[in-house]
Design a protein around this nucleic acid. Sequence first.
DNA 1: ACCCAGGCGTCAG
DNA 2: CTGACGCCTGGG
Length: 327
Amino acid sequence: MKENFQIYNKEFEGPFNLPLTIKSGQTSQPAWLEQDGYFQELVVAENKPCLIKIKCGSKNMASSLEVEVESPYEIALKTVQDTIKDIFGLNDDLNNLYKFLEKDPKLSPTIEFCRGLRVFKAHNPFECVISSITSANNSIIRWNRSIRMMSEKWGDMYHFPTGDFYTFPSPKKILTVPEHEVEELEYCGGEKNIAECVNNLKTCGVGYRGNYIKRASKIINEDLDLNTIARMNYQEAFQTLLEIPGVGPKVADCILLYGFGRGEAFPVDVWISRIISKLYFHGEKIKPDKIREYGRERFGKYAGYVQLYLFHYARKSGLLDELKPRI
DNA sequence: ACCCAGGCGTCAG
DNA sequence: CTGACGCCTGGG
């Protein structure tokens, strides 16, 4: 199938800034590739691969989106459209969010810095889990590169006129991947020397996280069906995710927010800790679990968006630099 | 040019 | 509670 269509701004509530949403470094997945003015990514819909190309409308259609989709298989257009709306948070009502933010003088300044920024949701929950594990104690560029490399090495490749695209590998596939050079050497029984061992997790730049990634894949392949997470209440889902190696409170909340659309999740990293303590506690040092509790209580179902907006506001307004220790 | 300290969340001790 | 983990960044 190959289809072109528009998504009109009247189909969702509030503004939408596509490039901002894609490039804001949210841990659901790496940023989509930008080519020929389109952002492109291979997603799976109805279990079939589908290339999505999306850009902001031009001229009189400036506030709508132009989309091209292409797949070697037949997929119902409605399914693809719903998938796109879900990925870009187009079901979230930003007008309501802004009404909520406006009521808090600490939050209202974030609106003008982040207008149209939406939660960039995962199209693949497993990829989201691995992305989030890889993002811990890491930089955005580094985990983005790692996830891309994993897809290119072990995902399924599909060829399109605009290039080759890869799915993210399945848990089962990752189980067959050696963790590091030494393990790869053992697997091949000495057929190659250590310098030729480049087909392992460590060569993707994941460092010590390779071990977490393999153990997480094993659990998800054998014991934990990620679909069941979607049906659990927040607490239960949070506790279940904590069982996965490499998943602590911050990563669990990221998975819930980006992978499962739980808007009430409040992922707390050092920056959010500093921002919250500066804005609401006169700069007093507060432990991360207290910050998380505070955020969830104060911001409720908007907690995830508040986290996203505070971080980007702090980044763009210069608050972040100001909060860096020892200036 | 080069080096090395610092920082990111989680886990193990 | 503290240090180690790997890698990149950025200051000297």
